[in-house]
Nucleic acid binder design. Structure first.
Length: 781
DNA sequence: CGTACTAGTCTTTTT
DNA sequence: GACTAGTACG
C-alpha cells in the first residue's frame, strides 16, 4: 500500500506532500502527473487525516475521470470512495440539478448538444431576419460560445457592441438564442459552466456550502481551462485556498474552445504564494522521441521553458515516409502495421494513427479494412449525435419531460405519421399565442382547428402517454424496445441504401446495449450505496434526492455528456485512429503521424492568417502528437490529397524541418530516395537485420494494459472489420411465427446481414414485411 | 403531405 | 466527395 512512495522521484514526492495552499505543477508530457494527483489524494486521506469528502479532482474528459477514479480506488481503497472525481461539465450538472431553480430555471433542465444548438440558431435567425449567407449559424454560435466562455452576458455584449453593427447583431442573436433556451428549459455546454458561476454569485449560501465541502481541489489539464472554468475554480477554492493545478502550457491545444493559456502562465501572479513544481522527467518515451518533441516546441515563444528527458535510452530512430498521394499514405500505414504484427508480434492496440482532421480517417479506414486490421475510429460523429440515436433520445426526452420543444418537434413526424410543416407551424403559433409548450399545444390539438390531422396528433399524444405509463412498470430497455415496436421505427426507416439501414440498426442495437449496461451499473451503485450507507452529496441535506430522480432522467443526463474518447477501452485489441486532439493524454508504443503537410498540419487557417499564436497552437499540437509515442514514431506525408472534392498539392510540414535530421534513422533516408520507384510492400519491411539491431532486441513492451474497470458504456465506436452477428433466430423459412404488432404469419426468407438476420414474413393480415430479427422478436408457433 | 431531385456548403480541432 | 437544405412536382 505504502510502496507508492518509492516509485516517486523527488519532485513528484514534493508535489504529493505539498497539500496546503496553492500549488502549480508544471508537468511535461509523460511525467507521471496522473500518478502525482492520485498519490496526492491517497496521501491526504491516508496520512494527513483529510476527510475524503473534502477532496475534489476535476478533469476534462470522462475517460480521464474514470482512470483517476480507478487509480485512486486502487491506492486508497474504500477510503477513497468519498473523493469526488468529476469532469467540469458533470460537476456543474450535478450542482445545477440541485440548485438551478435559484436562478430561474427548472431543475429538470435538458442539455443541448451542437446539433440542437444549430436547430435553435436556425430558428432564431429566421425569426430575426438574419441573412445566414453573411452570418452563418455556426459562426454566430461560435461567437456566442466565446462570449459565454468569457462569462459575458447578453447585456455585456450589448455594451461591448456600442456602435459596432456586427456586434449589435450578435447581441440581438445572443439574446434571442438565450431566451429560446430558457423557454425550453435547456442549457448548452457553455451554459453548464456559466450558469454555475451565476448560481454561485447569486446564492452565496450555496457557494459557501460547496467551499466547505471542497477544501482540497485539484485540476488536471489546467492549461485547457477557459475563463468560466477558471472563475469556477477560483470561487470554489477562495475560502481554503488549497488549490492544486496540474498542466503543461506546451500542451494547450484548445484555444478555439476558449481555453486561456494565461490561466496557467499567470497562476503565480493570481496566487503569489503559490508553490511551483516542475516535472520534467518523462517515463514514457525514448530520448530520441523527446529530442524531437523538444526541438519542435522550442520554436514557440511565450512558454515556460522546460525540457523533457528520459532515462530510457535513445531507442529507435524516427522514421519518415513521403508518399505521392493520400491513398498511398493510407496503404503504407496499413502495410507497416500489418508487417509489424506479423514480424514483431506487436498487438494491434500498440499502434495508433494520428491525423489533424477527422476527414482524413476515411482513406485510412478503407485501407485498414482491406488489410484486415481491426481498428477503431475515435471521434467524427459522436455516437449520440447520430440520427437514429437522437431520434430515440428525443422520444425518451419527451417521455421523461416534454418541456423541450426541440425533442418533441423532432419526433412528431418521425417515423412519418402525416404531420407536416404546415401543421407544425399552426401548432407553434398556437403555443406561442397561448404561452404553452409545444407539447401542451399538442395536447389541446382539437382546439387549433386542424381538421383531420388533429386525430393524428391525438394519436401521437396518447402514444407518449402510453409510454409514460409503460415505464412505471417496466425498465428502460423494455421502454426502448416498446418505442421501436410501437412506432415501427426500423420498419419505416427511410434508409437510403441497404448498408445504411444496417449501420443504423447496429447503432440502435448498440444503444440498447448501453441502456442495459446503464441499468446494470445503476443497480450496482444502488446496492453498493445501501451496503456502505454512503452519505449524500455533501452539502445537500437530502443527498438521496439526486438518486430519486427517475432512472430515465439520469440516463439522459449521463448520455448528454459522453465524449467519443470516453468509450475507448484499453482491453479492445484494435489499432486506434484519431485526431491529434483526441490523442491527448494517451500513449502508444507505435505512433504514426499522418498528413504532415503545410496547409493541413499546420492547417490552412494557421498558415494563411499570419497570426503567430495560431501557428504556435498548431506546433503544440505537433508536440502533443510526438509525445504520444513510447518507442517508435513514424511521420507520413503525401504530395497530393483530395480535400473537399479537389486534389491539392502540399509541401511537407514545417514541423518536420524543425526536427534535427540526426534523429531520423538511416533507413528512412534511404527509403525516401528509393521510394520513387519501389513498391511499398517491398520497401516497408523493417530493417530488422541492419546494424541497428541493438535497439531491436526488445522493441516493445508488450504491456498488458492494466485491468481497467468496465465503464458504464463500454461501447466500441465506429467499428471496423470483425463482424458481429446477432442471435440466431430459432425459426426458419416456412415456419409460422407471431409478431407483437402484425399478428401471425409465415416466414418467407431469412437473410443473414452484417449484424443481424433480415427476416421476410407474410403476415395473415398485415401482408409481407421485412424486418430485422433482433427487433421483430418473432415467436415461433 | 411526401418524395425526388438539385444546388450549395463544407473541414480544423470538442466538452 | 458527402451531406444538407431547398425546391418542384405528384
Amino acid at each position: 500500500m505504502d510502496d507508492f512512495w518509492s516509485k516517486l522521484n523527488p519532485e513528484q514526492e514534493r508535489a504529493v506532500k505539498q497539500i496546503d495552499g496553492p500549488l502549480l505543477i508544471l508537468a511535461g508530457a509523460g511525467s507521471g502527473k496522473t500518478r502525482v494527483i492520485t498519490c496526492r489524494a491517497a496521501h491526504m486521506v491516508k496520512d494527513c487525516g483529510v476527510n475524503p469528502f473534502n477532496i475534489l479532482a476535476i478533469t476534462f474528459t470522462n475517460k480521464a475521470a474514470d482512470e483517476m477514479r480507478n487509480r485512486v480506488d486502487r491506492m486508497a481503497g474504500s477510503d477513497a470512495a468519498g473523493i469526488w472525481v468529476s469532469t467540469f461539465h458533470s460537476l456543474c450538472v450535478r450542482i445545477l440539478r440541485r440548485y438551478i431553480d435559484r436562478i430561474g430555471y427548472e431543475n429538470t433542465f435538458t442539455i443541448y448538444d451542437a446539433d440542437d444548438q444549430k436547430t435553435v440558431m436556425k430558428e432564431v435567425c429566421k425569426r430575426l431576419n438574419i441573412d445566414t449567407k453573411q452570418m452563418p449559424e455556426r459562426a454566430l454560435l461560435s461567437m456566442i460560445s466565446h462570449q459565454k466562455d468569457e462569462l459575458l452576458t447578453v447585456s455585456d455584449t450589448e455594451r461591448e457592441a456600442a456602435d459596432d453593427y456586427a456586434m449589435k447583431e450578435l447581441a440581438r442573436v445572443y439574446k434571442a438564442y438565450q431566451e429560446t433556451l430558457r423557454k425550453n428549459n435547456a442549457l448548452d455546454f457553455d451554459d453548464l459552466l456559466f450558469r454555475t458561476v451565476d448560481l454561485f454569485r447569486a446564492a452565496p449560501d450555496v457557494l459557501s456550502s460547496y467551499q466547505e465541502r471542497f477544501r482540497y481541489i485539484m485540476v488536471d489539464e489546467y492549461q485547457d481551462t477557459n475563463t468560466a472554468q477558471f472563475e469556477l475554480v477560483r470561487l470554489l477554492a477562495s475560502r481554503y485556498r488549497n488549490i492544486c493545478v496540474v498542466g503543461d502550457d506546451d500542451q494547450s491545444i484548445y484555444k478555439f474552445r476558449g481555453a486561456n493559456i494565461r490561466n496557467i502562465l499567470d497562476f503565480e501572479s493570481v496566487y503569489p504564494d503559490a508553490a511551483v513544481i516542475r516535472l520534467e522527467q518523462n517515463y514514457r518515451s525514448t530520448q530520441t522521441i523527446l529530442d524531437a518533441a523538444n526541438a519542435v516546441i522550442k520554436n514557440n515563444r511565450g512558454r515556460k521553458d522546460k525540457s523533457l528527458w528520459s532515462d530510457r535510452g535513445k531507442g529507435e530512430g524516427l522514421q519518415i515516409r513521403r508518399c505521392d498521394t493520400a491513398y498511398e499514405e493510407a496503404e503504407f500505414v496499413a502495410d507497416r502495421i500489418k508487417s509489424k504484427k506479423l514480424r514483431e508480434g506487436i498487438a494491434w492496440r500498440d499502434a495508433a494513427v494520428l491525423y489533424r482532421t477527422n476527414a482524413q480517417s476515411r482513406l485510412l479506414e478503407e485501407k485498414l479494412l482491406m488489410a484486415g486490421i481491426p481498428y477503431t475510429i475515435v471521434g467524427g460523429v459522436n455516437f449520440y449525435a447520430r440520427r437514429e440515436i437522437k431520434d430515440l433520445l428525443a422520444y425518451l426526452k419527451t417521455i421523461d419531460n416534454a418541456r423541450d420543444d426541440l425533442a418533441v418537434r423532432r419526433i412528431i413526424n418521425v417515423p412519418r405519421r402525416g404531420i407536416g410543416q404546415t401543421t407544425i407551424n399552426k401548432i407553434e403559433n398556437y403555443a406561442l399565442n397561448h404561452g404553452l409548450t409545444f407539447y401542451e399545444a399538442l395536447q389541446s390539438a382539437e382546439k387549433i382547428g386542424l381538421g383531420k390531422t388533429a386525430e393524428k396528433i391525438a394519436g401521437f399524444v396518447s402514444m407518449i402517454e402510453r409510454f409514460r405509463r409503460f415505464l412505471t412498470e417496466a425498465n428502460l430497455e423494455d421502454l426502448v424496445n416498446e418505442i421501436l415496436d410501437e412506432t415501427e421505427y426500423v420498419e419505416k426507416m427511410d434508409a437510403a441504401d441497404e448498408t445504411e439501414a444496417k449501420t443504423r440498426v447496429e447503432n440502435i442495437e448498440e444503444f440498447i446495449n448501453k441502456v442495459v449496461s446503464f441499468e446494470e451499473e445503476e443497480e450496482e451503485i444502488r446496492t453498493e450505496d445501501e451496503t456502505l450507507s454512503l452519505p449524500g452529496d455533501g452539502p445537500d441535506e437530502n443527498g438521496s434526492a439526486v438518486r430519486q430522480r427517475s432512472i430515465l432522467s439520469r440516463f439522459l443526463e449521463e448520455v448528454a455528456l459522453v465524449a467519443d474518447i470516453d468509450t475507448v477501452s484499453e482491453d479492445d485489441n484494435r489499432v486506434l485512429l484519431m485526431t491529434l486532439h483526441s490523442a491527448k493524454g494517451l500513449e502508444f508504443p507505435i505512433v504514426f503521424m499522418t498528413g504532415m503537410e503545410e496547409g493541413l498540419f499546420p492547417g490552412f487557417g494557421a498558415v494563411a492568417s499570419n497570426d503567430p499564436m495560431e501557428l504556435e497552437e498548431e506546433r503544440r499540437l505537433c508536440y502533443v502528437g510526438i509525445t504520444r509515442a513510447k518507442d517508435e514514431l513514424t511521420f507520413v506525408t503525401a504530395r497530393s490529397r483530395m480535400l473537399r472534392g479537389e486534389t491539392q498539392y502540399h509541401a511537407p510540414s514545417r514541423f518536420l524541418d524543425e526536427i534535427p535530421s540526426g534523429l531520423f534513422s538511416d533507413q528512412a533516408g534511404n527509403r525516401i530516395r528509393a521510394q520513387k520507384t519501389a513498391q511499398i510492400s517491398r520497401e516497408s519491411r523493417p530493417a530488422a537485420s541492419s546494424g541497428q539491431s541493438a535497439f531491436r532486441q526488445k522493441p516493445y513492451s508488450f504491456t498488458q494494459a492494466a485491468p481497467v474497470k468496465k465503464k458504464a458504456f463500454p461501447l466500441p465506436l465506429t467499428k471496423g472489420s470483425e463482424l458481429q452477428t446477432g442471435v440466431t433466430p430459432d425459426y426458419k423459412a416456412g415456419d409460422r411465427v407471431r409478431h407483437v404488432k402484425f399478428g401471425e404469419g409465415e416466414v418467407k426468407s431469412i437473410v443473414k446481414g452484417a449484424r443481424d438476420y433480415e427476416v421476410t414474413v407474410d403476415f395473415d393480415t398485415a401482408g409481407v414485411k421485412k424486418m430485422f430479427a433482433g427487433f421483430a422478436k418473432l415467436v415461433r408457433i
